[in-house]
Design a protein around this nucleic acid. Sequence first.
DNA 1: ATCATTTGACCTTG
DNA 2: CAAGGTCAAATGAT
Length: 353
Amino acid sequence: MESGWSWDQKSLIGELIQGMELTKQLKAELSSASAEESRGSLVHGIISSYDKALSILKWNGPMSQPQMVEAAFALPGSPISVNGSLSSDDSGKGLKDPQDPRKESMKRKTQPRWTEQVKVNSETGFEGPHEDGYSWRKYGQKDILGATFPRSYYRCTFRNTQNCWAIKQVQRSDEDHSVFDITYRGKHTCSQGNYLAQSCHSPKIQEKKENDHDHHQLQLSQENLFSNQTIENIEKLESKESTFCFGSTSAGCKDIVNGGFSHLAIDTHSTLGSYTQPFISPATADSNYFIPSPCHRSDVGGAHNVQHPEPDVHEIFSANSSATKSPILDWDFPFDSEQINSNFPFNAPGFFY
DNA sequence: ATCATTTGACCTTG
DNA sequence: CAAGGTCAAATGAT
């Protein structure tokens, strides 16, 4: 952690800086009887920033401070309910293709892996996890010994076109059917990942993106998605309990996919109100289920933020979002060096090990 | 026609 | 050898 910071280190710094900035704002807000909403927004932003920071640390666990991170995640009362464990034993197996696949297999084995627990409130619709912002394609489902529900396997839609090897596994919990264990493996190297990373981390960047035709289109379609598709999918979900998917490009969510992305880049401002989690596809109950997209958190940094419908959900969100994003994205450092220098003394000796 | 999901077969790992 | 993971043909949706 000294020389040549990696993207995650930068992201970490960014998150911490953001947290500090938000805290400052909150401080100002508190001293000036401002709207409660504003405060809540700031608080959420702060929490999200720290969540992300922790996620980053967690993700780098083996390389940096595993114990420390582990402990942090284990703190009782911590909003982070992520199942910090790097999944026990699903080692990177499989992959048999004789030639190229071999390489791929190798890649996968060395790719980072992390697990998250996402909770969905099937009664009210979607609370908890929704899209993680990426497009996934289901490539398999398997009954797991001892598990009531089958495990679904997803890979990035852009695997072939952009050589993105991110994959995820979704397993519905036996104990709590509303909980899904999602194991991610590999970082997104596709453009989608880059896009999400940027839009989510920097409000400025996001604004910029909105001027960009392609991205703008995506955002619009995604917003629609949240309000419409969700409902449709939910109905299906209820009628077919054993199978439903989240976020991914599953059949039920296909529309989105065609746009190139599944969701995300949401301008929380206008969307939040009716913003519920989109996901659930008619297909498999345990499948795609995603976490709050990187965008949610990204908004955190901005003035407006995501408002979680219920405290309960909030916790889950925090956990998911944090864990989800960091690992997956190749975040570009969202802050201007100026900004950083002027506001945060991370250069100070001791800030980083 | 194109693309995503389903599902049985096959491969890898322990 | 069993279980988990992936492939790929069949099928479905748009």
